[in-house]
Amino acid sequence: MSLDIVLITGMSGSGKSVALHALEDAGYYCVDNLPPELLTAFVALQKQQNASHVAIAMDVRSGVSLPLVPQQLDSLRREGVVLRSLFLDSTTDALVHRYSETRRRHPLSRQDPLTDLPEQQRALVQSIELERELLADLRDGADVIDTSIIRPAQLQSYIKALIAAPQSALTLVFQSFAFKRGVPLDADFVFDVRMLPNPHYVPALRALTGRDVQVIDWLRSHDDVARMYGDIEQFLGRWLDALAHDHRSYVTVAIGCTGGQHRSVFLVEQLARGFGDRWAALKRHRELDAT
């Protein structure tokens, strides 16, 4: 049995502990804050012990040794280790808010826990931006999950769906969202479908979603919706092979409408079904999953 490793990295305060707990619940042996210098030896030990599922969390506290990680990951993959890398991200505003609530100190900050003093808030923002720079190489090539406005239960659900997905050259994540709540940070491609006919203005459909048959039938009756689906399908069909050949493991396709309830949900459902025959395809509905 091959060794399956999930590496969790990301911004401090973005939910790495929540993700690690989700993997522990799924039966993974979990290690938090493993120094990169010990990664190769740790994996070798797990192989000797015939371990099958291991999750490792690393963060900016590893400091100067972080640049070692991408090369180590490539080496482990060449040895046959099934390795998936997850990067948790959040907007700076969301991270500042979380530090304000918890009064914790950022790992790169020399200041006391955040108070309302403007100079301390500026120092926190500077620490967050420095952390982004230090983690940039780890973010590249990882599956990025934007945790800015999702609940811990949503994050746990997303993590479990990712690890349950069948292994393939490329995993597609189709995500619906509401523009009024911001564009997801984890999106590789963003399609704006707000110009399509909106079921929100049909009283009988307003309380439903793009997964309900009444809304599906209504949207399918409009030629513009079919054209939009065809255009997105054609674009992705043209470029996914190139992305897979470029050794991309994950591609997140975000479909946005005004409220994230009808049009974007419908298209995500249809696209995931259409591409699921060839690629591992996952669905996320940011606004619906939050209810």
Rank of each mutant, 00 (worst) to 15 (best):
A272Q: 09
G274K: 04
E269K: 05
R263W: 06
V251Q: 11
S249T: 07
A242I: 11
Q261G: 03
Q234N: 12
Q270H: 06
G276S: 02
D246Y: 01
I232C: 13
E233F: 13
I255D: 08
V251C: 15
E269D: 05
D241W: 07
D231F: 15
T258G: 09
Q270C: 07
W239V: 14
C257D: 10
R248N: 13
H247M: 09
G256T: 04
V265Q: 08
W239H: 15
T258R: 01
L267P: 02
E233C: 12
G237E: 09
V268N: 05
G260P: 11
D241Y: 03
I232D: 12
H262Q: 10
G276C: 07
T258S: 10
Q234G: 10
L240R: 10
R238K: 14
G276R: 06
D231K: 15
I255S: 01
F235L: 15
Y250W: 13
L243P: 01
G259C: 09
V268L: 03
G259E: 03
V268W: 06
T252H: 05
G260E: 08
T252D: 08
V268E: 05
D277Q: 07
R248W: 07
R238H: 14
L236W: 11
V253N: 05
F235I: 15
L243H: 14
S249E: 11
D231L: 15
G276A: 02
A242T: 13
F275Q: 09
D241G: 15
R273F: 07
R273T: 08
L271I: 02
L236I: 09
W239M: 14
Y250V: 10
H247Q: 14
